[in-house]
């Protein structure tokens, strides 16, 4: 069984996504984490890092798109074949999903205290949260839906789900495509 190149490609890509995602987390997320962690526990940060990594609006979260692209390119280059790059990209994305699920689970079972919502930390404000790409995207979509109500119709579920689907699919598409580019640039000998 020969999968060493894919293994190292997957490991490198996943570490890039996790490491860069952690270090380059948008400022708004940091405010959210500082705000909620005292009551919701230490897994707020890993959860936010993974939410930011998995739900990516390509129109405003350029940093995360770039991180996935770099991860895919490196993983693909290590894998060395297009097929291998596809597998590396897919497994990197699935691993990220698994880590998100793990973080949410940990968040729920460890020390969460929903009794009180703590005050915003000194030096911050809720406008920091409005700077989070995902929050901006959601607001944009909600305003769009609000306009839709003007026509007198009900909620268009397709209009609600389509952007969410795009945000979820964006990382896996980016990581696989850039992985194949990486494999093309540096093919296995």
């Amino acid at each position: 069984m020969a999968f060493g190149s894919k293994y190292f490609g997957w490991l490198a890509a996943l570490l890039i996504v996790l490491g860069a995602g952690w270090l380059l987390l948008p400022e708004g997320y940091n405010t959210l984490i500082l705000w909620l962690s005292p009551q919701l526990g230490n897994y707020v940060r890993p959860t936010m890092v993974m939410v930011n990594a998995i739900l990516v609006n390509p129109l405003n979260n350029y940093v995360m798109v770039a991180i996935w692209a770099v991860a895919g390119f490196v993983g693909g280059a290590i894998a060395g074949t297009k097929k291998g790059a596809f597998v590396v990209g897919l497994f990197t994305w699935l691993s990220a999903l698994l880590i998100l699920a793990f973080s949410v689970y940990q968040l729920l079972i460890t020390g969460m205290d929903l009794g009180t919502l703590p005050p915003m930390p000194p030096g911050t404000s809720i406008t920091d949260l409005l700077g989070i790409p995902l929050v901006q995207s959601i607001i944009g979509e909600l305003l769009g839906l609000l306009g839709g109500f003007g026509g007198g119709g009900g909620i268009d579920m397709l209009a609600v789900l389509t952007p969410l689907l795009i945000w979820v699919i964006t990382p896996v598409v980016v990581v696989i495509v850039t992985g194949m580019v990486g494999a093309t640039v540096r093919p296995k000998e």
């Binding site: 962690s37 005292p38 009551q39 919701l40 020390g111 703590p118 915003m120 930390p121 911050t124």
Partner: peptide, 9 residues
Amino acid sequence: TFQNEGGYG
């Protein structure tokens, strides 16, 4: 003693 990370006021 702080059990959790965060910004405390």
